[in-house]
Structures are given as C-alpha cells and as structure tokens.
C-alpha cells in the first residue's frame, strides 16, 4: 500500500459558484508539497475538505488508502492529519506551553506526556523562551510558530499548514523556513504547505500544486512553476510572485 495522503477528483460548489473542479492532490509520506494559488483559487476550501471541515460534492479523500469521508475532523486528527489555521486560533488565556500540550491532550494522552511533548516541540522550533507567555500576548509571527508547535505535538503523519507565512515580516519568514526544515528532519511527516508566498514554497517544498479558479493548473517542480506561463498568468499582478514574498 502506498503511504500517502490523497484528495482525488475533488469538486465543490457553494450555490452556483464552483469553487473546486475535479482537483486532485497527493502528499506522500515524508514529502513536502506546496499548494499555491491566488486569492479565490480554492486552496482553503480544499484543505477544509481534506481536514473534514467541509464536505465535498464529489471525489474522495484517503489516508494511506483508507477513505476519510465518513470521519469527523477530530477523528481525522486522531488518525494523524493535523492542521494549522490562517488566524492561528490559539487559546489566548493559556500559556504557549499549555496551548501546545493540548495538541497531545486532544489525542487522549496523559498530562505528563503532553507536557513532555510540548517541551520537546518548543525546543525543536527554538521558541522555548515563549513557553510561559499567554498566547494572547504573542506577536503575529510567534503565534504562527506556536500554532505549528501545537499541531506537531500530536506527532502527525501529515501536517497541513494554512498560509503560515501570511503577515510575517522579513525576519520571521526565514525563521519559519528554518522551523519547517527542522520539523521535516525531526518528524519525517508529510507536509502540505498552503501559501501565497511562492518563494517560501520553492524553498520549503519538493513539489508544488497550483490552483486557479478552482482548477489545478500545475503539478511539479517548484522551479518549473516559477517559469510556467500558466502559473505566471494566474498570478499576474500579484507582487508575491515576482518578489518571492
């Protein structure tokens, strides 16, 4: 059996608006895949379908060959599919360490193991100094890293990151790249990185999938994507493409 996370021939409409049209994406075990596309391309809808937050009209989502369509988001998380959110969605009254520990507690692990995992993940990401700070007081960039840490505390097989670099400054993006590199080395989990930032995806991922207007227009090498006319056209006018930010 091929160990992979797969969304095959996914279609989704909201009323008359077709948001996804027969889109397929596969993330193999240990692989880092970027999901690119301009605003409205259907990226968020696709990962919401993958994580179980939306129901697709057509197509199939599988994890290592097991269909996931009947499973609620929390079951998919327990099966090894973790996700982060664009807005971070941390628990503001809890400290960073407590937020991260919830990533393990949610799977039914003991408080002791959750605490150990929290400490370890914060160390891997190099943000141990934040552990006692209430999450509500974090900077945007730090909150993104803590959201990533919380997802990693579950030790997922596959990690879906929803625009982790959005809103980060020029110092925080390299820190995120470094963190992603460490995560890959440390956990070996498959990663789906949903981003606007083409430069970041090109550095962090071995393959990219590009969506435009709900359809897949590219699937291949990140450098090739940078030179692809269709991808360029989809991004025309988007400053992120030219500058890499």
């Amino acid at each position: 059996m091929n160990r992979a996370f797969e969304a095959a021939e996914i279609s989704k409409s909201f009323g008359a608006l077709q948001v996804l049209d027969n889109v397929s994406i596969t993330v193999n075990a240990g692989e880092s895949v970027g999901l690119l596309g301009p605003n409205g391309a259907g990226k968020s809808t696709l990962i919401n379908i993958i994580a179980g937050y939306e129901k697709q009209d057509g197509g199939l989502v599988t994890l290592d060959g097991t269909p996931l369509d009947d499973y609620a988001p929390h079951v998919r998380a327990q099966m090894g599919v973790a996700r982060t959110f664009q807005a971070g969605r941390l628990f503001p009254q809890l400290t960073v360490a407590e937020n991260v520990a919830l990533g393990a507690l949610g799977l039914g692990l003991s408080g002791k193991i959750a605490r150990q995992r929290s400490e370890h993940v914060l160390e891997v990401l190099g943000i141990t100094d934040l552990e006692g700070i209430p999450a509500g007081g974090l900077s945007h960039g730090s909150a993104r890293l803590v959201g990533l840490a919380r997802a990693l505390a579950a030790q997922p097989k596959y990690l879906i990151m929803d625009e982790p670099a959005a809103g980060l400054n020029e110092h925080e993006v390299p820190a995120l790249l470094s963190a992603l590199s460490k995560v890959r080395e440390e956990t070996g989990c498959g990663m789906l990185l949903v981003e606007h930032n083409v430069g970041l995806v090109a550095q962090a991922c071995s393959r990219v999938v590009v969506l435009a207007a709900g359809s897949m227009i590219f699937n291949g090498d990140p450098q090739a994507a940078l030179n692809d006319e269709g991808v360029k056209s989809a991004y025309l006018g988007d400053a992120a493409f030219g500058s890499g930010h």
Binding site: H74, F85, L102
Partner: peptide, 9 residues
Amino acid sequence: LAAPALGIS
C-alpha cells in the same frame, strides 16, 4: 473550530 483539529471530540 480549532479544538477538533487537535483531535478533541
């Protein structure tokens, strides 16, 4: 919204 993503039912 975030809680189910952590495996919480």
